[in-house]
Amino acid sequence: MAPAEDMVANPPSEAEETASAGVANTSPISTVLIVIAMHTEAAPLVSKFELVEDGDKSMFPKGVPWVRYCGKYKDLYINLIWPGKDPALGVDSVGTISASLVTYASIQAFKPDLVINAGTAGGFKAKGASIGDVYLTSAVAFHDRRIPIPVFDMYGIGAKETFSCPNLLKQLNLKVGKLSTGDSMDMSPHDESAILANDATLKDMEGAAVAYVADLLSVPAIFLKAVTDIVDGEKPTAEEFLQNLVIVTAALDQAVTQVIDFINGRCISDL
């Protein structure tokens, strides 16, 4: 296991070359893009996969704070992209706007065979979620894009089923649930109603945005979310999130590692 010396050049993925030739995709997955919102979530994976920070910013627009870690783990080229710190306020660039932008730019730059959006989320105890649970999401939707006009309302919700991974689920001990995404950590009555309508077990600030971009660019995407706080519990969300972030990130790290190990040597159709 060692960082790939040629990751900056980013060789085309075998799966992409095969697909572009009009042949059924039977090549093993070669290039994986991991999109992750917070440095605390990213750091253990950077260490685990021995990724190195790429100092060449030329593949991204000038001035953006986005950070790329890259390397080769087993037979996989891994690009882990963190949106970086907000230039003005110095906090993690969380939320749907940053997630959409970095996902789009990274897919364009690195041509991944698979996108993995890994991160933490709130969970609903009414749907069986507990602190530290890691979910592979089955569907995503937005809960804060309210457009009360026929058809536009459906566009605002943006409900999508995620890429199906029956073999991965059979192999790994992960829960399955739907994810609802919005740009606020707290939950207004309007948001709560929409989340219930989305039948969501999880609530985050990036997933559906990443799903929208991946779907737009026809790249399979999977979503791994670890529960840091119980949205319908008794503790304030922000307090519980900060209290559990580090320990839950360890569970997320383990799950992502298991998924990467499973993916290695397999084709998309094997998942």
Rank of each mutant, 00 (worst) to 15 (best):
Asp6Arg: 03
Asp6Asn: 13
Pro11Tyr: 03
Ser13Gln: 09
Ser13His: 05
Glu14Leu: 14
Ala21Asp: 13
Ala24Glu: 13
Pro28Ala: 12
Pro28Asn: 12
Pro28Tyr: 11
Ser30Leu: 02
Ala37Leu: 01
Glu41Leu: 06
Glu53Ile: 00
Asp56Cys: 01
Val64Ile: 15
Val67Ile: 13
Lys72Tyr: 03
Gly84Gln: 04
Asp86Val: 12
Ala88Lys: 14
Leu89Ala: 12
Ile97Asn: 14
Ile97Met: 14
Thr103Asn: 06
Ala109Arg: 15
Phe110Ile: 00
Gly119Ser: 07
Gly119Phe: 05
Gly119His: 00
Lys125Ser: 00
Gly132Pro: 10
Thr137Ser: 15
Ser138Cys: 08
Pro148Gln: 10
Asp153Leu: 02
Phe163Ala: 03
Cys165Gly: 03
Asn167Thr: 15
Asn167Gln: 15
Asn167Cys: 07
Asn167Trp: 11
Lys170Ala: 13
Leu179Asn: 08
Ser180Gly: 10
Asp183Phe: 08
Asp186Asn: 12
Asp186Phe: 12
Met187Lys: 10
Ser188Ile: 03
Ile195Asn: 09
Asp199Asn: 15
Leu202Phe: 07
Ala208Leu: 03
Ala209Ile: 11
Val227Asp: 06
Thr228Val: 13
Thr228Ile: 06
Val246Ile: 15
Ile247Ser: 11
Val248Ala: 04
Thr249Phe: 03
Ala251Pro: 01
Asp253Val: 02
Gln254Trp: 01
Gln258Cys: 05
Gly265Ser: 12
